[in-house]
Design a protein around this nucleic acid. Structure first.
Lengths: 160, 160
DNA sequence: CGTGAAATAAAAGAGCC
DNA sequence: GGCTCTTTTATTTCACG
């Protein structure tokens, strides 16, 4: 068994910060059963190691006027590096695209796009998405209802 | 023009907190061009109004040992409320399911599932997903490469 | 890793523009 | 609404066991 990168305490710290990133170090330490000093040391290490990549406020999309979410499947011309890279960079640069993955299956890329309404999506589709490099086919899947979103990662499932 | 729910200052506050949820109120105020008191008042109001729903630490999935992300399209038997609701609740209760949406198009539901590896997904598919209520068809799309993930919402796009 | 003390910073509130 | 100033409270930090 190689030295585990994350021990049980690290996982508890991460779980707590996923639930509430604004926990003070004192409260966090109490929650994970540690005193403040070593707790803060661990958090700093997790940040420096790139395990914690950011602390974000999660917003209600409807409340901020971004009521439309669309999952967009996109096929590109070919799969070679030059094509894929050009597409990737162009897609990632769009602020409306909040996630973009290369996936197996029907589509090559799966994008999650957030917009004000259908009219905004129509403009985006015509003016931007269809003009991305090497796009061959686009399939739009509109979100009708969000059952669960931006949930914390299931660190409990890692217990060995 | 109805009273806008969010004015320009609110949007600047939200943008800053999406980028860094751990900003102190003093720093946040300086960044948005406000003094601390009104800035904190606005943040509290945004929290109470449900605009800010959570503050989360964002983790590197590979670094925590959750190297496999799968987008799973699921069709259910029928679309009536009883069926859809039963499915929804069962799916949302699974910790590995970090997002679940009712969508238009090919599938009825689109789930984002995070796991350790393919073996874990095989178990999940056989033991859990296929046994969810009213499931008719499952299509698994494996993430080969993550280009962009958990990006902040594009509040700039709301400027009228 | 824990403890405790010292230094620092943050939040909260009152009164005013 | 927002600003400033003051008070109160909490948090970070560090040296040592």
């Amino acid at each position: 068994m190689p030295t585990p990168v994350l021990d049980a305490l690290d996982r508890r710290i991460l779980a707590a910060l996923q639930r509430d990133a604004r926990l003070s170090n004192v409260d966090l330490a109490a929650e994970v059963g540690l005193s403040p000093s070593p707790c803060l040391r661990r958090v700093r290490l997790l940040e420096e190691a790139g395990v914690i990549t950011a602390y974000r406020a999660i917003l209600d999309r409807d409340a901020v006027g971004l009521g439309l979410t669309v999952f967009v499947g996109i096929k590109v011309d070919r799969h070679d590096d030059a094509h894929a890279t050009a597409f990737r960079e162009a897609a990632a640069a769009l602020p409306e695209v909040i996630s973009c993955h290369l996936v197996s299956g029907e589509s090559d890329f799966l994008l999650q796009i957030v917009l004000k309404d259908l009219a905004a999506y129509e403009r985006m589709l015509l003016d931007t998405l269809l003009k991305l490099p090497h796009v061959k086919d686009i399939r739009s899947n509109f979100v009708l209802n969000t059952v669960k979103s931006a949930a914390p990662l299931p660190l409990d499932q890692l217990a060995r």
